[in-house]
Structures are given as structure tokens and as C-alpha cells.
Design a protein around this nucleic acid. Sequence first.
RNA 1: GUCCCCUUCGUCUAGAGGCCUAGGACAACUCCCUUUCACGGAGUAGACACCGAUUCGAAUUCGGUAGGGGACGCCA
Length: 487
Amino acid sequence: MSVRLRFAPSPTGHLHVGGARTALYNYLYAKKMGGTFILRVEDTDLERSTEEALRMQIDDLTWLGLKWDEGVDPVTLDSVGKNSEPYGPYRQSLRKDIYQKHARQLLEQGKAYYDFRTDEELEALKQQAPAGENFRTPRPDKILSIAEAEARIANGEKAAVRFRVDEIRDYKIQDIVRGEVVFPSDMVGDFVILRSNGMPVYNFCCVVDDALMKITHVLRAEEHLSNTLRQQMLYEAFGYKTPEFGHLSLVLGKDRQKLSKRHGATSCHEYMEKGYLPEALLNFIALLGWSTSDNREIYTIPELIEAFSLDRFNSSGAVFDEEKLKWMNAMHLRALDHQKLWSFIEPRLQAAGIHCPQEPEWVDRALSLFKTSMETLEDAKVLFQPIDDQLYKIQDEAAEVFTWESTKAVLMEWKQGLEKAPDYMSSEDFEKLQNSIKDSCGVKGKHLFMPIRVAVIGKPHGAELKILVPLLHKSSLLKRVEMCLAK
RNA sequence: GUCCCCUUCGUCUAGAGGCCUAGGACAACUCCCUUUCACGGAGUAGACACCGAUUCGAAUUCGGUAGGGGACGCCA
């Protein structure tokens, strides 16, 4: 039987890197096994789930390249018409009747009951409970028959549906990451499966959907480990077969707390904006909590699929280290072909108002020279900025250079050399010219190259001229040296 | 508090009883390359949380302690 895995985010904002990692592992295993990767959306919390957030999650997933074979339609988001795929719709908010039917079944079997207590009453119960103990919601004094309860509901009263936890025994859960985990059933009280507004609750729809969608493996974050007990109870109540569970260790911030906003960037979207490549981000998060036995670090996505296996998860939490991500991004950046790389860089330069020649040969040359100096796509701005004549400006830090006696002569010679030079100098041309200036002016060291650098980039430190000069048209260089001479 | 999970260099990790004087990567530091910065190359430093037990032998197995994390919702 072919495997079926799903990623089931709740849309409350951009996709978190922890979520992306969960999605990635599910994706990798589905692909590795030639199975199906499904996107389901857990948007039953009407307060927090929004259409915009769902859009963002879909876009983030698409940016990452984690394409789902089945699931929420990326265009209609399942809300228009009926999804043609086998187990749709894939948004839980659109599956209400399915859950209601399932809840009804448990109600009729006496495995669940209507609870009319209000939030306030329940809160009061919690307050009265003895401190220092695991609080479990007590069963109401009186449980109404279905008919009685529904009569009251028809009258406008609100009731939630609770699952009865009667049996006191240990539940054994086989976990891919952690092995056997045992939970005593008295860890939980009767828990809500349907809210009083009719919406199902996570643990309930998760079970119903995983069963109906024939999910075979559930790889999800460790924070769900203890939910698995409730889910196990529901699987048994319905007589459904449980999938294989794997509870992944958490992604942590520098302080070893669960990665959150206060650690800085936590969403994939932010990393996209910061100029990270999706392959690099995926490569990096794949290796947070999973590894191979060789020392390999750089993987393409197909290579990750090839290498992936369920028996190499690390069970302890992993700190998200952006420094290493940067390095990895640099590696992926270098591996990119120039055309593709430029297609990523160009819009960023444009957005920053930096203008560059567009000829393919020029771009190709520029990229071969700049590629190794880039960690993120954003770095291109600093690199390409000196190319744009409009942005050339003699910086304050260059002031000292203009106090040197020899500077003027060097600049004059530089200008004359330029006049005789080809439209674009080669590195060798440049070095030759520089050497001839050294001879004719009798200056060397910083008194030689700093004035030239100022005449190229406007400041005495920065990009290597041997690289930069060949990228600048003679006319640009002349314009700049003239500005220096006019100073 | 109760239950569950986790614990190898600063960070990500390799490691399934002798191959471990614990390997790799990022970061750090040093040197080389370089008439700046970077790239690149060569090195240095840096870890088995602790205590017991099992064993000829333990990072690796078992027990305990400590620390960290997670869950205890009509959030997911």
C-alpha cells in the first residue's frame, strides 16, 4: 500500500520555520516512497484563522517548492465549489457536517454526551480544584439524554459535546522518533470534541480526517505528543486503524525555548525577504533534527528525497542558527546557474533603485566575479551598488586621500590611462595601468591604490578593483575620476 | 503541581559495548594567499550533565539525581 502523509497547518499567519520543517519531512517521506503528500488546513478556530493567513501559508509552501499532490486548492482555497479530489474538501471549516456525523455516532453509542456548562462555570470549577494537581474537567452531575439535550438546543441553548473517558488503563503509543511512550488514561478528563458553536476541536477532527483521508504516517511537532493519548482514545472509539506517529523534536531559539517571534525571524516569508533560497532553507531545516551518517551537509531537494529515512530523527530539540543557514545559503547560491541567479537578484536591485547593464555577457561576468561574495540575495545590493553611476558619490571617509600630495597626479594618470583603454578593461589591463601609474608617479602602496579606489567606488576601502573595474564601462570610470579631479 | 519528552564542542550533529586519544560542519582564533575587504587554503581551541550499577571494557545498557523542554483549553 502506498503511503499517504499530510501537512496540516492552522492558518494564523505566515508559515513558521518549524512548520516548514514538519511539512518538509512529510513531503520527503511521501516522495521517497512514491506516495502522496496532502495539504489539509486546520482552520476550526474561527477566531484566529483567516483567509489571508491561509493565502500566506499556501504562498509560503509554494515558494518553498513543497508541492502537494492532494489537498486544498491553491487557487480557490476550496471555498469555491467542490474540490474534485477524493477526500475533499481539505479545509476543516468546510467539513463541519462530517464531524457532526461522527460526533453523533459517539453520542448515540454513549461514548460522548452534551455538556451545557458555560465557560464561566467551568472556570469556577477549575478555581475550586485543589492546587498542585492535574486538573481534569469533572463530569457534569447530570447527563441529559440525546433527545432531552437536543430539545434544549432547539430552544436556543448552547452545548458542547464531550468524549467520555471511562476506562482507566495505560495507553501505549508507538512513536517513530521516541519508541514506545505510555500515557495513563487518567491524565485527561472528558474532553470536548464539538464546541458549542458546532465547530469540532483539534483532537477530534484530526482523528476523523486522518482516518477518512487514509493517512498512513503522521509526522508532527513534539508538542502534539501528549495529544496523541486523546487521539488514540478516539481511534479506538471509532474502530479506526491508527497511523504511524512520529513526534519531531522542537525547533528552538538561541535561549533554547521554542522558537518564537522574540527570537527574530521565525517565518519562511521573512527568510525569503532576507534573500535566502528556498532550497537552502529546506536543506538547513532538514538537518535540524535529522541527519545521515555521512558528513554531508549540502543537499538539493531530490538528494534529500533520496537520502531520507524515518529512522534517523534526533529526539532532542535543535537551536535554529542563522549563521549556519547563511553559510548554507552561500553554498546553494554558488551552485545556481547564472541565469537563474540573476532572475533572483535583478528584481531586488530594481527594488533598491540600482541600475546595471543587462547584457547577458556582462551579467554573466559580474556574477562569476560576485558570486563568492554573496551569502544572501540581499548582499547583491552592496555588491552591485558601485556599478550604478547615479549612486557614485565621494564619501566622507575618502577625505584623507585628497590631502595627499600625490593623489592629484595619480588621478590624472588614471584618467589618461582610461582614455586610451578599451570600453571594458580586463583585470590584466587594469593591473598594467595601475603599474604604469606607479612608475610614472613614483607612488606605491595605499597612496597609489586608495586614490584609484576612490575614483572607482568613492571610498578608500571596499570591493576589489581587479574585479570591479572590468565591470565598469570606460565612460563611467571617466565620469567618476573627473568628479574626483574637480574636488 | 501532575504527566510526558529530552541531555555529545558556543550551535547543528556523527556515534547503536572495544574502531573514541570522541569524527564532521557553522561560528571563533592563528597562519598562508591578497598592495584593502572578502573568497580560497592550512591549522588551533572546544563536548559525552552528574552519581551509581552491569561489564574484562560504557558516550553507547540499566537505575537515580540535576537541568531543560512540552502538554495539561469549547488553541492547534
